[in-house]
Write a protein that binds this DNA or RNA. Structure first.
Length: 571
RNA sequence: CGGGGAGUGGCGCAGUCUGGUAGCGCACCCGGCUGGGGGCCGGGCGGUCGCAGGUUCAAAUCCUGUCUCCCCGACCA
């Protein structure tokens, strides 16, 4: 249905009162989506067209690297989830069928696809291959937000690769990375890929594809040739002017000064001249540094923050902040603790200079030590556990940090799922081997929202042509039955038969309303058929991006060729 | 889960403090005018005031409970 008079396109003059994000406001105002409940969204006809455009781009490129499209169910038996340990995840929707059997609503499809592959694959001759589908994911998110950006139910393209070994996985991973590059280029989005945390899923490598925009939930550290999620980013710290260490640490009276800011002000030193002590309790770990588990003192520069994900990766085990009584028993009074004079293992962040004289807690109420030198005054293991800051450098260039939406990820799973679910094969020697897997996700809805965020202007959506609901919107001016309307109808038919996707605004409204709606919806090319140019046998043309008028418009005679020509120049 | 805010026609809001039988703009319907940037005139339709209970002669308004939604944080395999 591409006559506006008959299309369900409920545009709104005002955004929903509770909307904050640009994409939330505009996608609702433009009539693309409607909310049903928290994190639950309906795609209206125009919005669904956009979503499907993204889906088709993805499909073509994944097919291009040998992915085989299929479809797996959302409602699944709980069994496989119990075996992989993911049944315990809070975000997983759990339910029972009428017989009382435990079921789940899938949040991804590793369990399902691996179960099938385990049944089907016998020999190394059956490998490698890759499978994918577009399917709804259900996640009981603690906090859905920003319209379609973070929802409880959404469609994901999730692909899975199955290989004999790490080398095969790497080849698949590289092929998918190439497909992803082409996908995101084709969408017209501004994007980049970053190294990302492999998280509790383990595995050997992961990248996230990020679309920078103000509503993004992730922070990305960027420098020339460098892009990483702040969760795992590393960089050279900004230098701090430090006094030389004293011959021996010297106690100073610092009454009531329990924070870095207090101490820095009191002693008139920069915050970076302090050592910040962060005591944590670690589960038993394979890491030799904390083999026994228990209390560990993490020490970073006073102006830095401990990065909890980097710390977890260093520790190789779950951890929690230590309680005050645990701290008091082994180190000293909370607020005045430091690395000197106790036997708690110390992890010292690399940003701490080892030749400086630092201020550190004295492990005594109302006292700090001055002139502390790492290595001499306390033993430590060097680690990289701080969160990078804007202005730190990578290869000499300062980094910037910007918010971004994660629109896709690729992940080397290894045997995380094949092992517990028994997906194995017999190798050339007749020996049983676990299948090596990768997983690859893309959220089409996030791509749509990111495009709206990145390219919106005062009038509405101005996204890339690849993501427009229609290629061209024709605004027909004039009364019902007028020459203008008849000419617009003719233009509409001609462009359609030339293979263009065309929306015709044939509603009996004033021009202002039609122009406003057209700009809100954001078709990349708008043709206006009105009295002004009709007498010259032309239609006016305006490019949505930048609201640029096309000089002279286009001729009605030969319109299809003219539009096709124009189309090639659009962003 | 912690903190903050909000539920009154399709959308945006006022009314709540100080109880007295629901109002404004837009949208919508009818008629007319208008026809290049959300136009004008006239006439209309539409609301269990989130829900439940309580106080009262009387509740959108006061009290209790509950549900829903939004924002910040925690979380995010």
């Amino acid at each position: 249905m591409t006559r506006l008079s008959q299309l369900l396109l409920p545009t709104e003059r005002q955004p929903p009162a509770d909307a904050e994000a640009i994409s939330h406001k505009l996608m609702v105002r433009a009539g693309l989506v409607r909310q049903l409940g928290t994190g639950l969204w309906t795609w209206l006809p125009a919005g669904w067209r956009v979503h499907q455009k993204v889906v088709q781009i993805i499909r073509e490129e994944i097919d291009g690297v040998g992915g085989q499209e299929m479809l797996m169910p959302v409602l699944q038996p709980a069994d496989a989830w119990q075996r992989t340990g993911r049944y315990e995840i809070d975000e997983l929707f759990k339910l029972q069928d009428r017989k009382g059997a435990d079921m789940v609503l899938a949040m991804t499809h590793e369990e399902c696809v691996t179960t099938h592959v385990a049944q089907v694959v016998r020999s190394y001759r059956d490998l490698p291959f890759s499978l994918y589908h577009f399917q709804i994911k259900e996640r009981d998110e603690p906090r859905p937000r920003a319209g379609v950006l973070r929802t409880r139910e959404f469609i994901m393209k999730d692909a899975y690769t199955f290989d004999r070994d790490e080398a095969g996985l790497q080849a698949h991973y590289d092929a998918y990375a190439g497909a992803y590059d082409r996908i995101f280029d084709r969408t017209g989005l501004r994007w980049y890929s970053v190294e990302s945390d492999v998280g509790m899923m383990g595995g050997s490598g992961a990248h996230e594809y990020m679309a920078p925009c103000p509503a993004g939930e992730n922070e990305v550290a960027l420098a020339p040739g460098y892009a990483a999620n702040v969760e795992i980013a590393s960089a050279e710290p900004q230098p701090v002017r430090l006094p030389a260490p004293l011959a021996a640490p010297e106690s100073v009276h610092t009454p009531g000064a329990t924070t870095v800011e207090d101490v820095a002000r009191l002693l008139d030193v920069p915050a970076g001249g302090l050592l910040k002590a962060f005591p944590v309790v670690v589960d038993a770990s394979e890491d030799a540094r904390v083999a026994a588990g228990g209390l560990v003192l993490v020490v970073v520069r006073g102006d830095h923050r401990v990065n909890e994900i980097k710390l977890a990766n260093v520790l190789g085990a779950p951890w929690r902040p230590a309680r005050e009584d645990e701290i008091a028993a082994r180190i000293g009074p909370a607020g005045f603790i430091g690395p000197v004079g106790h036997d708690v293992p110390i992890l010292l962040d690399d940003a701490v200079a080892q030749d400086g004289g630092y201020i550190a807690g004295a492990n005594e109420t109302d006292h700090h030590l001055r002139g502390v030198r790492p290595g001499r005054d306390f033993a430590f293991e060097p680690v990289d556990v701080r969160t990078v800051q804007a202005g730190d450098t990578v290869g000499g260039a300062p980094i910037t940090i910007e918010p971004a939406i994660e629109v896709g990820n690729i992940f080397q799973l290894g045997t995380r799922y094949s092992a517990p679910l028994g997906a194995s094969y017999l190798d050339v020697n007749g020996k049983e081997q676990p299948i090596v897997m990768g997983s690859y996700g893309i959220g089409p809805a996030r791509i749509v929202a990111a495009a709206v965020e990145q390219f919106a202007d005062e009038q509405g959506i101005a996204g890339p042509r690849a993501l427009a609901p229609w290629d061209v919107e024709i605004v027909a001016l004039g009364k019902p039955g007028s020459d203008e309307l008849a000419a617009a109808e003719g233009l509409y038919r001609e462009l359609r038969s030339a293979g263009l996707e065309v929306l015709l605004d044939d509603r009996p409204l004033g021009p202002g309303s039609k122009f406003a709606d057209a700009e809100l919806l954001g078709c990349p090319l708008r043709l206006t058929v009105g009295r002004r140019s009709l007498q010259e046998g032309r239609a006016e043309a305006q490019l949505r991006r930048g609201l640029q008028d096309v000089e002279g418009g286009i001729p009605l005679d030969g319109a299809a060729e003219a539009v096709a020509e124009l189309w090639r120049t659009l962003p």
